[in-house]
């Protein structure tokens, strides 16, 4: 899989791996490693969201004319993800294992069903809609 779909899907999987590492450190009570791994995970996740919000979504909306379509729901779910990232960071600061794991589990399911929609629909649609322009768009996304 190449193009927008290939790059962004691979980044989803990388975020999942970083998430699993941070969650494991919290479960083991290794707070120093947990903080470091969580910030690595959160940084890549937020960067991924920004690649979409700043470049992909506006271009998609302009190209397809679908302003109130899939991208509106994606933006709303991005807000929910950011809220859960903040909640996890707070639980990490308070060293509250249960609260962190509860927020983490919620984040995981929210994110996975969000990723499925992007990977099955939005990214393939984008690759099709942009055609030969997709490579240039991907370069701009990677610059974020």
């Amino acid at each position: 899989m190449d193009g927008i779909a290939g790059f962004m899907t691979a980044e989803h999987r990388r975020c999942d791996e970083l998430f699993a590492d941070a969650e494991a450190a919290v479960a083991e009570g290794d707070w120093a490693a947990a903080a470091e791994r969580f910030e690595a995970f959160a940084a890549l996740t937020v960067r991924h969201l920004l690649r979409e919000e700043r470049v992909l979504f506006p271009a998609f909306e302009e190209r397809t004319g679908m302003v109130d379509g899939p991208t509106a729901v994606m933006r709303q779910e991005h807000d929910q993800m950011r809220m859960l990232l903040d909640a996890m960071r707070e639980a990490l600061h308070d060293r509250d294992v249960d609260r962190f794991l509860g927020d983490a589990d919620t984040f995981m399911i929210l994110t996975q069903q969000h990723d499925m929609k992007e990977e099955q629909v939005l990214y393939p649609m984008s690759d099709t809609a942009f055609g030969s322009d997709a490579a240039g768009l991907l370069d701009r996304m990677q610059d974020v």
Partner: peptide, 12 residues
């Protein structure tokens, strides 16, 4: 063509 595009509403 945008596959499945016209009727796609995740919030539906």
């Amino acid at each position: 063509m945008i596959p499945g595009g016209g009727d796609l509403r995740f919030d539906r």
